[in-house]
Computed example of a mutant assay.
Amino acid sequence: MSNNIQLHKNDLPDDLKLGNTIAVDGEFMGLNVRRDPLCLIQVSSGNSDAHIVQFDRKNYNSPNLIKLLGDEKITKIFHFGRADIAHIKHYLKTDVNNILDTKIASKLARSYSDNHSLKSLIKEFINIDISKQFQSSDFGGELAPAQLKYCANDVIYLHKIHEELNKILVRENRINLYRDCLKFLKIRVDLDLALFKDDIWAH
Rank of each mutant, 00 (worst) to 15 (best):
H79G: 12
Q6M: 01
E164G: 03
I126P: 14
D15H: 04
Q133K: 15
S44P: 04
F80H: 14
N3G: 01
N64G: 07
I122G: 03
K73A: 12
A194L: 13
V170R: 11
R110W: 03
L118A: 04
F55M: 04
I77A: 11
H162E: 03
D190L: 12
M1I: 10
S117E: 01
L165F: 06
N4P: 00
L148Y: 07
S44W: 04
L169R: 04
K89V: 08
G46T: 11
L158E: 00
I122R: 04
G26F: 01
D14Y: 10
K132R: 05
S117Q: 07
D199G: 11
Q147S: 10
L121Q: 13
S62K: 11
N98L: 14
N32L: 08
F78L: 09
F134V: 11
I77V: 10
I85A: 10
A86R: 14
A105Q: 05
A202Y: 07
I128K: 15
V155T: 05
Y91K: 00
D95N: 15
Q135V: 04
M1S: 08
Q135R: 12
I85N: 06
L7K: 01
R57E: 09
L108S: 02
D154L: 01
I85L: 10
L191D: 15
L143F: 02
T21K: 14
D199P: 06
K183H: 07
A50N: 02
K93I: 09
L68E: 00
E163I: 06
W201G: 10
N127M: 12
A50H: 00
M29D: 05
G141M: 10
S137Y: 01
S120F: 13
A23N: 06
S113K: 15
I161R: 09
L143C: 05
H79P: 13
Y60F: 15
P13E: 07
I175H: 12
I156S: 09
R188S: 13
D101W: 06
Y178T: 00
N3Y: 11
I168D: 08
R57V: 13
L191T: 12
K186E: 02
W201V: 05
L195G: 06
K132E: 15
N3S: 07
M1H: 10
I85R: 09
K167R: 09
K167M: 14
E172G: 01
L193F: 06
P63N: 04
I22N: 08
I175D: 14
V189F: 11
